[in-house]
Design a protein around this nucleic acid. Sequence first.
DNA 1: GTTAGCACTCAATAAGCAAGAGTGCTAACG
DNA 2: CGTTAGCACTCTTGCTTATTGAGTGCTAAC
Lengths: 346, 346
Amino acid sequence: MNKELNERCRLILEAIIEDYIMSGEPVGSRALTRRHNIALSPATVRNVMADLEEMGFLTSPHTSAGRVPTEKGYRFYLDSLLQVKQLSLGKRQSIQEHYKHRGLRMEELLREAGRILSATSNYTGVVMVPHLTTTICRRIDFVRLSARRILVVFVSQSGIVEHKLIESDLPLTESELQEATNYLSQTFSGLSIQEIKQYIVSQMAEEKAMYDSILRRTLQLSSMALEDDLGGQVFIEGACNILDQPEFNDLNRMKRLMRTFDQKNLLVELLHKSQLTEGVQIYIGSPDHYSDIEGCSLVAASFTSRWGATGTLGIIGPTRMPYSTVIPLVDFTAGLVGSILDIDEE
Amino acid sequence: MNKELNERCRLILEAIIEDYIMSGEPVGSRALTRRHNIALSPATVRNVMADLEEMGFLTSPHTSAGRVPTEKGYRFYLDSLLQVKQLSLGKRQSIQEHYKHRGLRMEELLREAGRILSATSNYTGVVMVPHLTTTICRRIDFVRLSARRILVVFVSQSGIVEHKLIESDLPLTESELQEATNYLSQTFSGLSIQEIKQYIVSQMAEEKAMYDSILRRTLQLSSMALEDDLGGQVFIEGACNILDQPEFNDLNRMKRLMRTFDQKNLLVELLHKSQLTEGVQIYIGSPDHYSDIEGCSLVAASFTSRWGATGTLGIIGPTRMPYSTVIPLVDFTAGLVGSILDIDEE
DNA sequence: GTTAGCACTCAATAAGCAAGAGTGCTAACG
DNA sequence: CGTTAGCACTCTTGCTTATTGAGTGCTAAC
């Protein structure tokens, strides 16, 4: 069916979607012919519109309103019609400026990326620091808070720092911990967390007999330290930006979106998904698919440093978003963040 | 003038405010006499109300609506009328439950406190980790990311972990860093950051002559590490809870509040203020004072561990909030968090 | 296949109206 | 003199009713 869309249909569909993206109002046949000097009469356009509606690309809020793109309409637009512009040199430079002259901490760096996305697009920026399982370990440190409470500080190869508290069944002295720290740094530096876990399991099997050996306790400690996944945070920046969009004059939709931001799990899920794929991904909220962000879309891309996937970032805005500028913005920012992580690594 | 408020006026003012807190609607004379079996006729109540309005405790949205408390009204209510209940045993226990069986990281612990405040009150919970200048240093670690890029990991006596990136003018080897780390841990452990800074300044004066000594470079490094204040984060939990309040059917007010949450600086300011004072502080948003949170109040208290002030937490809700339960909730949670920090410390 | 014309639909806006809640004032009461 | 009943007045709220205007779908003519 889609293949049957002839040139004229495609042209009109594109015009409608772009008009709608600009105005946010249902677009009618008459207005359309005037704005995009189309050499057709409104009546003809109406016929085409009726066809497009039947095919599921358009819908009308009520009988006597114009047409609005459906999710399917947007999808087709994104896949077949949209021409992504290049990000203007000025914007690229201004974004790069943000990162100059800064000794940012990793967390701040990612937050800043979110802020840039938000400020440049006037929508909401999201950044996810991934779970660390796949990342490479640069260093593991133990800090003794009390005899049984140990703080684990984990530094990944790309400079992301995470820490967690663990509780040991046996009391540990400062020197025991020091020894464990040294052992770990030497043994595990340069491995990924998954590899470390495997190594620990095999070692512990060997050491089974030796009940109270230092090594055994060190291994136990490390095992606990790596037990739950570290990381997986999501930063949301500029959540309120999106509220200025006219579609959020609807109080309830607005509340639901805020709730989604608050809970974050949907975002984590989506960002995780796009982590697995190359390039820019677009998720369109709809009553069926991602009802929590109905009326909104997420444009996401993962950024990677030389050491493997390290995170995902994106923009959440209304579905009627100027994708032709937002997509390259997300793309560029992801690349930039990736390259900055590389610099950090040496 | 305030002193002239006789028993009857106080009683009626209290009744009005409590009614308003319950209903959110302007309260009229007739409804008042019925709900709080007051042995007065509506007409008399009206006279009293007129007096209270003239004195600035009440106002009416329009001629034929009931009365609504002003900021001054709330203040008087909070200072002179309100009787704070004790937090019910059940609630106290359920809050304590949240903290059992958990090896929480410091950050998670504070976030969780915010979540508890939010969930128990159905409003928005805020928690501020303070700047670290006053806190005691347990450990400073350097992690070498590249020759010039150093990650500083700072662990406070109470287990708060902070890290930042610094850029050194001279390349540093792994072993140099190791030496610096050892030196610092031995020299500075147990001092507050302020003390450390002072010590460094005095030492650097002495070492002025020795241009390239290890000690000098160590000191330089430490100085950079402590340069800007670390910390000062604010966690906001349950921001969307507050949106269910009827006063936020006003879209603009809602947007402004969300913007305030996004930017955080007003919150930082207020939370900082209450850090300096004992006990529970209440800030009432009004067009004059804190116009960004107009219609809202912040109920805040600082939590302290044995090692000195460590942070502030609180609840942001509509000004018409059931203070008699919110205040003890904030108070109790602040105490609990403080005591948990103590446990962490040994 | 395209277009002009026309009747029809429906949301949005405004206007008018009645109901209800609450006030302020005045005059009477104990 | 404080308190109360009565009453006219005000102002919101909800409801109904026109009116307008944008846009459609259909039909018939080009």
